[in-house]
Structures are given as structure tokens and as C-alpha cells.
Design a protein around this nucleic acid. Structure first.
Lengths: 213, 213
DNA sequence: CTATTTTTTGACCGCACGGTAAAAACGTAG
DNA sequence: CTACGTTTTTACCGTGCGGTCAAAAAATAG
């Protein structure tokens, strides 16, 4: 019984249910990446899954629930990817380089997911204009910025980095990275490796300590 | 007769019509900035103008026409603002500083317009996902970047700037500036003057010629 | 084979959207 | 006051949306 699952809170999901949920999430990602959030209707997502719209409601209570699941899946997978790539680096400058390279690589190899994420972040709003993503807003302007700011501060304390406002530097680095997504849509042949190299050089100079011997 | 105006192409618009059009554009800007493009329905815009939805069709053929007019008005006013502020500067480095400062100032003093512009740029799409803003896309990834790249190239030729890829540097500068909008929404108390100073310093270092005597 | 549970569908609903047509209100010149 | 052109409203359409409900179809268990 489903009601038993719900009541007990346990996720005794069937094999089929798990598979369908995963499939629907994937189809939602593709639809959102391709059409934007507000055009990715349940009918459209269902069509891509080879299912009727009404069947979605068996697996997800509302459309919002499906979108939230998309968010959860994408952010979790993104975190896993970044965790894999960010082996310990000897110095803050190396950490910064690794951070930029890993981010650019992720964006390049997961364009659909990034596109979908951006579309959701920008358009998943309440009846008023307020974002329904306080957790994500916090993650974008907090969690996601925090590790960067941490690297920058440590670099300054150790004298490897010069004087600057860590928050502004962190925001600028993230902005430069996040700008890649839209650019890829406009000009798909963009040389990502070269771009990453440019960014590493750019922010290497911007963070460098001028007063070095 | 209206048809006469249309047929001749002449804009013999009444005083009232001109005023209504301007009012509707302003209301549309506010609605889009507040609710996002897809929630800014004709009914909502009409409500803000104290008019019925159907009256809009007398002044604008379709909703798209109204949105396009919003775009035209905002971009034109923005260009006027920037033209005013960008007095000739003696060196490329000064030009770059002036460019950053003028942009940040504009964003700070026209938040609604910037928000609306961003929402339109991100969501004004065709039935497929393709942007309906080739002119704006060109302006965002071309026209708007071109003067920046121009400054950067001249600085390199004159030896005031060091070695870097002008396109990447220009993209990063624009990304840093454009990131202000979303940040303002999240934390409205942001110190814009300080932010502008930080950016000027940051990109001053990033563009500097290391091999200077 | 049958009974039961899980999964999917078909038929709807109410709603808000962009858009249309015709009539009413308004302003103004003769 | 009247006639005429301008502006706005009232009354509608058709469409697609998210969502509900009961019945049908697939699985699964006995």
C-alpha cells in the first residue's frame, strides 16, 4: 500500500517506481534545458517519457515536487563530481586553479543539467516574484561561495594572495564561471579548455600578491 | 483613422496614445521586474495601469509587440545613460575604470529596468527553446562586448595592458557587472560603491602589464 | 485460475492566458 | 446639440495548463 509508505515515512519504493521516477527526472531535465522551465509542461515531460501526463501524478504529488526532485538530483550529482575532482592541493593558489578547472569541466560535460539548473533557479518563483528556492539561493550565494571565499582568505593569511575583498573576488570568479553556460548556448564551438586556461591566468594575476620579493 | 497611420507608416500618434503607450511600457517593466516575464500577463499589466486587459490591444497589436517595445525603451535609455557618462578618457586603463563605474552606477540606479531586461533576455523564447532576441543576443554577446574588447585591445597595443585573451577578459568583466543584478535582489543592502571599487582594482590588476619598468 | 495490489489511462474540471468583435463612452469640431 | 473619430469596455473564444477521479490494465501472490 502506498499510504502505508507515506504514513511510515519509509521509502519502500518498487523497482518500477524507482526507475520511472529516475526516468521522469531525466526527461524533465532535458525538457527544461531545451524549452525552459515554463515550457516544460507535464504533458511535454510525459511525452518524452512515452507516458501520459496523468501517470506523473502517481509518482510525484505535484509538478513542484518533480522540479524539486530535479534540483536535488542535479545538485547532488554536481557535488559528487566536484568532490571527486577536488583532490587536496598544496597551496591556496593551486586550490583556486583546481576549483576553476573542475567547474569549467563540469559545465562543459553536463550542459543540459547546467541549463536546466539555471532555468529553474531563475524561474521557479512564487505567485509573487519571490524565489521558491531559499535553499538554492543560499547555496548559490552562500554554500557555493563559501568554499571559494575560504580558499581566498587562506591565501591572504598565508601571504600568497594580495589585498582584495574576498567576497567580491569570489562573486567575480563564480560569475565568470556561470557565464559559460549562456555562452555555450550562443556559440557551441567555444573552446572550453582555452577558456579555463584564460580564467586561471586572469584570476591568478588578480589574486597575486604584488609585494612579493 | 488608425489604418491610415499604419498604411502610411507615419507615426501620427495622438497625445493620449503616446502617453498610454509609455504608461503601459512602464507598468510592464514594473510587472516583469517584480514577477518575472511569464507572470507579467496582460491582465496584470492592465491592472497596474488601471485599465482593462483588452485596451492594451488597441495600443499594441500583440503581447510580443509590447515586450519588444519594453526592450527598445530600456536599451535606448541605457545607451543614453552610458553615452552621457562615458566622457573621453586619456588612457585605456581609465576607459576601463570609467566603463565599470558607469555600468555599476546604472545598474544601481535602474534596478527594475535591469531586472526586467534580464528576465526578458532569459525567457523571451520561441515555441522551441530558441531566443526570440537575436538582436539582443547580438547586443549582449556582440555590441555590448565589442566596445570593451576594443578598450582592451588598444590597451595591449599601447603596452599599458599585459597579455591576455581580450574576449575572455571582456566576458569576465561583463559577467562580474551583470552578476550585480541578482545579488541586489538577494541582498538589497549591497554596497555598490565599494563593489565598483573592488572591481576596478580587480580588473586593474588582471589587465596590468607585469613587465612594466 | 483467481484475488489482490501496483501502475497507467481516459474523461473531466476550473482556471488563466492571449486574442477578437462589437458596442459603448469619451472628446472635440462644426 | 450634433456628428464623428478616438479610446475603452463588455462579452466572448479557443487553448493549454496543473490537477482529480474512477476505471482499466499489468503485475504479483495464493
Amino acid at each position: 500500500m502506498r499510504s502505508k509508505n507515506r504514513a511510515s515515512g519509509k521509502q519502500e519504493r518498487t523497482f518500477i517506481e524507482e526507475a520511472r521516477r529516475a526516468q521522469l527526472v531525466e526527461c524533465a531535465i532535458e525538457a527544461i534545458a531545451e524549452l525552459g522551465l515554463h515550457r516544460a509542461s507535464l504533458a511535454e515531460i510525459a511525452r518524452r517519457a512515452g507516458i501520459t501526463k496523468q501517470a506523473i501524478f502517481y509518482h510525484f504529488a505535484t509538478r513542484d515536487a518533480l522540479i524539486h526532485e530535479v534540483l536535488a538530483v542535479v545538485t547532488r550529482q554536481g557535488a559528487e563530481f566536484m568532490a571527486e575532482r577536488s583532490r587536496r592541493q598544496p597551496t591556496p593558489a593551486d586550490e583556486l586553479r583546481a576549483y576553476i578547472e573542475a567547474n569549467v569541466e563540469y559545465i562543459g560535460s553536463h550542459r543540459d543539467r547546467v541549463r536546466a539548473l539555471v532555468s529553474i533557479a531563475m524561474n521557479f518563483t512564487d505567485e509573487d516574484g519571490r524565489s521558491r528556492l531559499l535553499p538554492l539561493d543560499a547555496s548559490v550565494y552562500g554554500d557555493s561561495l563559501a568554499p571559494l571565499q575560504d580558499i581566498l582568505r587562506r591565501g591572504q593569511e598565508q601571504g600568497q594572495f594580495g589585498e582584495f575583498t574576498p567576497r567580491t573576488m569570489a562573486m567575480t570568479i563564480r560569475a565568470a564561471i556561470d557565464a559559460i553556460g549562456p555562452q555555450l548556448s550562443a556559440l557551441p564551438e567555444l573552446d572550453l579548455d582555452g577558456y579555463a586556461r584564460d580564467l586561471v591566468q586572469l584570476f591568478g594575476r588578480a589574486t597575486a600578491n604584488d609585494e612579493r620579493a
